[in-house]
């Protein structure tokens, strides 16, 4: 994996194993997450790409029998180490889920929730500004600015997903993890999310899990191909898609299994 990066990677994982009970879901994965690129995780269903994504902000902690081994660092800090508060980690490494999951609260409250629990805003004016900025960055402001008090769940699916992105952005994360963010959306909403990912690139390190190879090719600069819990190949997206080094990658990309 020869990657010439000018900057140190944002996150690094070394020899990571994830177990669900006795079953090993992730085997010995080592990977660097670039700070200025979009990284895509691709692979067939059940290959462990989502599982691995969720180790990056310790969402797997909520699963009773899940166990993570190995070292994962965020800017050189061990995220499973005793000095790392998991709440702080999840604010720094935000997450967007497969199914849009806005809180059953107003649009404003959805975005304001993160800044509020972390005490970012000194007052109402500052909080308003934070909510507006997050919604602008998520490309939703123009559509919702006149109805911030309406319920977030009343928005369309694509809007809900952008609201979830705004909610993640509102706490100024350093990394945004997206777990198949478009799988529940129609092509037009998907295109909007992909456009948004382009705009957010560079400001945040972005990792996106997708089962849609065209999407990986469109939005990412780095692609990691997972199969049966193993990281088969990781490299420049153009390389992976035009000139894969592994036979298994080539077979998957050309649609021989999936």
């Amino acid at each position: 994996m020869d990657m010439e990066t000018t900057l140190a990677p944002k996150m690094t994982a070394a020899n990571v194993n994830v177990f669900y009970g006795d079953k090993r879901a992730i085997e010995d994965v080592s990977i660097d997450v670039s700070r200025e690129h979009v990284t895509a995780f691709i692979g067939p269903s059940g290959c462990g790409k989502s599982t691995f994504l969720r180790t990056l902000n310790r969402m797997n902690d909520t699963i009773a029998n899940a166990r993570v081994e190995g070292l994962i660092e965020l800017d050189g800090e061990d995220i499973y180490g005793p000095a790392m508060e998991v709440e702080q980690l999840r604010a720094r490494v935000g997450m967007v889920f497969q199914k849009p999951n806005p809180f059953p609260k107003s649009i404003y409250e959805n975005v304001a929730y993160g800044p509020r629990i972390h005490g970012f805003a000194a007052g109402k004016v500052e909080l308003d500004a934070m909510v507006e900025r997050a919604l602008v960055r998520a490309g939703l402001w123009e559509e919702v600015k006149d109805r911030l008090s309406e319920s977030g769940t009343a928005l369309s699916g694509g809007q809900q997903q952008r609201l979830c992105i705004a909610r993640a952005i509102a706490v100024d994360p350093e990394v945004i993890l997206m777990d198949e963010p478009c799988s529940a959306l129609d092509p037009i909403a998907t295109a909007k999310i992909e456009e948004l990912i382009h705009e957010l690139r560079g400001r945040y390190a972005i990792v996106i899990v997708t089962h849609n190879m065209q999407q990986a090719a469109r939005v990412s600069q780095r692609t990691a191909f997972f199969h049966l819990g193993v990281l088969v190949e990781y490299g420049e997206t153009t390389e992976i898609f035009t000139n894969p080094r592994q036979k298994r990658t080539e077979d998957y990309i050309t649609g021989r299994y999936g």
């Binding site: 980690l89 889920f97 909610r167």
Partner: peptide
């Protein structure tokens, strides 16, 4: 209460007590 709501709150860094009492 759908687990997705808990995920959403945990995902922005809410503690477990905050997840319980806010959502």
């Amino acid at each position: 209460v759908p687990p997705s709501i808990r995920d959403a709150a945990l995902g922005v860094g809410a503690s477990r007590i905050q997840v319980v009492f806010h959502h």
